[in-house]
């Protein structure tokens, strides 16, 4: 299928039930969604893959509710964010998310990290609280502006800025302690 704008693909899915059009959307956005969830789960590939699949299935079933006010990527990020927090809530351990992730990591063992840098990023991310991790990932890794993060998370912009600042200072401390600073 030739490269069509998102809105044309979405219209084809909605009007004609064209699954190939949705497949094109999945192929286009799978990498950023998987990357976001991989970071939020501190490197758990299996879990982030499941959550990413869940994100696209929810997007498919809720496609009628997509309004062209925000771009499709932002809308998908919001679904991914909700899917991740729904998963955490479903484990009834919202306030102990790091423990959930640690538990999953122990279970998956070595498959979680591909390289030492990835392992370091995951280790550094585990130092952050879930909200800090989310805001740092979206702002510093995905380069999203604060107003987009407000749309995705529903947090006030001031709260997001303080999460980013706190997360950043924790990461800087980690980097300095581990010899990353030149």
């Amino acid at each position: 299928m030739p490269l069509l704008p998102d809105i044309a693909l979405i219209s084809q899915v909605l009007m004609f039930g064209n699954r190939r059009a949705f497949d094109s959307l999945v192929r286009k956005y799978q990498a950023p969604v998987r990357r976001l969830l991989l970071t939020l789960t501190a490197g758990d590939k299996a879990l982030s893959d499941d959550l990413a699949q869940e994100t696209f299935i929810k997007a498919y079933t809720a496609l009628e509710s997509y309004k062209n006010h925000s771009n499709f990527a932002t809308w998908l990020y919001r679904i991914a964010y909700n899917v991740f927090y729904d998963y955490i809530r479903s484990r009834k351990e919202t306030c102990l998310m790091d423990e959930v992730i640690d538990e999953v990591e122990t279970a998956h063992g070595q498959e979680l990290s591909d390289s030492s840098i990835t392992a370091d990023i995951n280790e550094a991310m585990r130092l952050l609280r879930p909200e800090e991790r989310t805001c740092v990932t979206l702002h510093l890794m995905e380069d999203l502006p604060i107003d987009k993060i407000v749309e995705i998370t529903g947090m006030p912009s001031g709260t997001i800025k303080s999460h980013v600042a706190r997360g950043r200072s924790k990461l800087v401390r980690y980097l300095k302690n581990n010899g990353y600073e030149r």
Partner: peptide, 20 residues
Amino acid sequence: ELVRQFLKSSTHLPADEGFS
């Protein structure tokens, strides 16, 4: 910049044809 560079140093995900 230090944090951004660190976070982006391993953000490339290999294409997963099976995902879609």
